[in-house]
């Protein structure tokens, strides 16, 4: 549904997006994750035909953003980051205007407005001027506008920023419902956010793509090479030697702690069961066995801190 090939965007001589390539399949919810200034909005603006790329190409719903821009704009529903709306217009007026802009006739417009107003819980504010609405309602008006023409692709730039926890939850479940018949790409700089809603995560940092995959895949990538910490009551050298024998253990670090031996194992696979067996065979009591799990959050923080994985 979305294909991005070697896309770059320069502001002057600074690269905001630097040679990124990724694809999004039909029906997926994809999270576009990156810290502030990573280039998320810039990428999204290229995909929605707001600005052209400096290099590379992108297609959305099978149409090239540069050569078939109108087709792309027809197939995309876009919620910009700042949710720009006309404050002097009433909600109904605004949605009618947007429907007309999209070339819908009166009947199509009115039924579409009814549908999105119900979907985005706007019934109570439909006659109010947009300028008087709270941030949460403005966000919903923006979302309603993005859904008006029932687009194949929905691109939402930070859809939950500035919302209260309840509204975040509502928006999330709405997005999940929408995924049934739309391909959704949403950006965020908050990991739990995308972890909760998305089937795939694309992480960018300083304009470059640093990781992509399902949350599970990314988690596996992180758990790879995690360390296991065990404390057994046995001689330091013996414990250390036994641990080295276990398949999958690449490094062992042992130290004595008040009569116990604490070993830190670097492993390529889960060896907790093997450690237990060793403790049984050698009759070394086991008082601690834990994985030093790196969370996706750590992973993300590491990326943000500048360490490439």
């Amino acid at each position: 549904m979305i294909e991005v090939r070697n896309l770059s965007k320069y502001y002057g001589s600074r690269a905001a997006v630097d040679d990124i390539t990724f694809g999004v399949d039909e029906g997926q919810i994809v999270g576009f994750l990156g810290p502030n200034g990573a280039g998320k909005t810039t990428t999204i603006r290229i995909l929605t035909c707001f600005m052209p790329a400096t290099n590379g190409s992108a297609t959305v719903a099978g149409h090239d953003v540069l050569t078939a821009s109108m087709r792309v704009r027809e197939s995309v529903g876009y919620l910009p980051e700042s949710v720009p709306l006309y404050p002097e217009m009433r909600v109904r007026e605004y949605l009618r205007f947007r429907g007309k802009l999209r070339g819908m006739d009166r009947a199509a417009r009115e039924s579409a407005i009814q549908r999105v107003v119900a979907r985005c819980w706007l019934q109570d504010v439909i006659g109010r001027p947009i300028g008087q609405l709270s941030k949460g309602f403005r966000q919903r008006v923006g979302l309603a506008d993005a859904l008006l023409h029932n687009p194949k692709v929905l691109i939402l730039d930070e859809p939950t920023v500035g919302l209260d926890p309840r509204q975040i939850r509502e928006t999330r479940s709405l997005i999940q419902e929408l995924a049934a018949d739309h391909t959704v790409m949403l950006s965020s700089h908050i990991l739990p956010e995308v972890e909760a809603t998305c089937q795939r995560i694309i992480i960018i940092h300083e304009g470059q793509l640093v990781a992509q995959g399902s949350p599970e895949e990314l988690r596996a990538k992180v758990t790879e090479g995690t360390s296991l910490i065990a404390e057994l009551k046995g001689p330091v050298t013996d414990v250390s030697a036994e641990m080295r024998k276990l398949a999958g253990v690449t490094d062992v670090h042992a130290q004595a702690i008040d009569g116990w031996t604490q070993v830190t194992l670097t492993t390529a696979r889960d060896v907790r069961e093997d450690v237990y067996k060793v403790s049984q065979e050698k009759s070394w009591p086991l008082r601690e066995l834990r994985r030093d799990i790196a969370t996706l959050e750590d992973f993300f923080v590491k990326i943000v801190a500048g360490t490439r994985v």
Binding site: R45, C49, M70, P80, G103
Partner: peptide, 11 residues
Amino acid sequence: SGTIESLMTAP
């Protein structure tokens, strides 16, 4: 106001 963004991404 930034509304140019929603205009210029409309068909």
